[in-house]
Nucleic acid binder design. Structure first.
Length: 376
RNA sequence: GUGGAUAUAGCUUAGUUGGUUAAAGCGCCAGUUUGUGGCACUGGAGACCGUCGGUUCGAAUCCGACUUUCCACC
């Protein structure tokens, strides 16, 4: 259940209550694809990094170890020992981004596994069953993420199909939750808005899925290559048609600046691989901007990654040490950098919430948008 | 000591019958990464080709000497 507790223009401060815990929004979900944060962080590390929601992937867990295995181990939360809320991505985006040889039909998608190439079929019902077995707090609808740039006719047809798939997702999730043996019989379902970069398709689609009275609404298919200004325009176009009483999730976004902009336009929830993936390549987020710890200039730099950060990594280690660990290919380099970046993101969202609580988000927005994305 | 081989970028090597600005991998220096195939991708700098001399219009490439390293034999 989503409760809007404060609003400043379009920006919203809310509380999302679930059977697995309460989420203060706006919030950033930390991506643990296969039940682990890439870069060697576990559930305990996530708590230390001030994470509220863990995100895991239907597609990956279905392929390995298999959702039946996860179910046998008590669901993803018990398996990974994360006692907070978990959101599972539906597999729709992975079919689009990872799998090859995909064949999309009304029933669903046939694709080749990126692990061993075997052919797999996934449709709305399969995705819901897998996510039910994973026992996540929130299941995402099975959708099609259209490539950018997209043909208008195809985007329209695809959005219509994604809406029909959503009806099937809703029916199957209701059946599974009421079946008596669901890992989480209170599993929630979020719908996903599509329509590429065409505002009329986006709005039509949003209006249609808003009528389905789902537990939350996501905007998908953005940040896939279009200019950020186009992304902001789509959010502005769709946002007035999103139910005010439901949580809103912008999928896969983004940079700190993207998040500040999207909160300004009424989004409540985010996830992105950027803090973890970039950390694995030595890029760390700081109050001053993005630093590449691989740069030679850090070889003898005794300062912490971010002198204003109070995370354990910044309280303990120097840029020079991290630089050395990255150059030496030590796994610890990734672990420390990933931890810092997730902490930075989670703290950023805390600061956004504090500004909203104080009614000063407008000022926060003007002062900080774009500030954290610069390379230094 | 004798015979043979070797010497090209920081490292390991490629360079066809001598022919414009000598190539690659690693390393180095940067950049990219947005619902995650975990070490990826894209650029850049860097060698007067062991030294000296010779042949030739022209030599990393052919010849000689010296030096380096390695192998075999005595």
């Amino acid at each position: 259940m989503y409760e809007l507790i404060k609003q400043e223009n379009a920006a919203r401060r809310g509380v999302f209550t679930t059977v697995h815990g309460t989420v203060q929004t706006p919030a950033f979900m930390n991506v643990a694809t296969a039940g682990a944060i890439k870069g060697a962080l576990d559930a305990g590390d996530l708590r230390a990094a001030r994470c509220q929601v863990m995100l895991s992937n239907t597609y990956h867990l279905h392929l390995r170890p298999g959702d039946e295995t996860v179910r046998a181990m008590g669901g993803i939360r018990t398996f990974a020992k994360w006692d907070g809320p978990v959101l599972t991505d539906s597999g729709g985006f992975q079919v689009f981004s990872l799998a090859k040889l995909r064949n999309i039909r009304e029933e669903g998608v046939t694709f080749a596994s990126h692990i061993d190439g075997r052919r797999i079929f996934m449709g709305p019902e399969e995705s819901m069953r897998i996510q039910s077995n994973l026992g996540s707090t929130v299941a995402m609808a099975f959708d099609e993420c259209v490539e950018n740039p997209a043909e208008y006719a195809y985007a329209k047809e695809s959005a219509a199909r994604t809406a029909r798939w959503l009806e099937r997702c809703k029916a199957e999730m209701r059946r599974l939750n009421g079946s008596g043996d669901a890992v989480n019989p209170d599993q929630l379902l979020f719908g996903i808005n599509q329509g590429a970069t065409f505002q009329d398709i986006r709005i039509d689609h949003m209006q249609r899925i808003a009528e389905m009275d789902l537990d939350g609404y996501a905007i998908g298919g953005l940040a896939v290559g279009e200019p950020t200004e186009v992304m902001y325009e789509i959010i502005e176009a769709v946002e007035p048609h999103m139910p005010k009483t439901k949580i809103r999730y912008l999928m896969g976004v983004g940079t700190p600046g993207n998040i500040i902009e999207a909160v300004y336009r009424g989004v409540d929830l985010f996830d992105c691989v950027m803090p973890s993936r970039n950390a694995r390549h030595g890029h760390v987020f700081t109050e001053e901007g993005v630093r590449n710890l691989m740069n030679a200039k850090y070889a003898l730099d005794d300062a912490p990654i971010d002198p204003t950060c109070d995370c354990p990594v910044c309280r303990t280690h120097s840029r020079a040490y991290l630089h050395h660990l990255f150059k030496a290919g030590e796994m610890l380099a990734m672990r420390l950098a990933v931890f810092h970046n997730l902490y930075f993101y989670n703290r950023l969202l805390e600061r956004i919430r504090e500004a909203l609580d104080a009614g000063t988000y407008e000022a926060f927005y003007r002062e900080n948008r774009g500030k954290f994305d610069v390379r230094i």
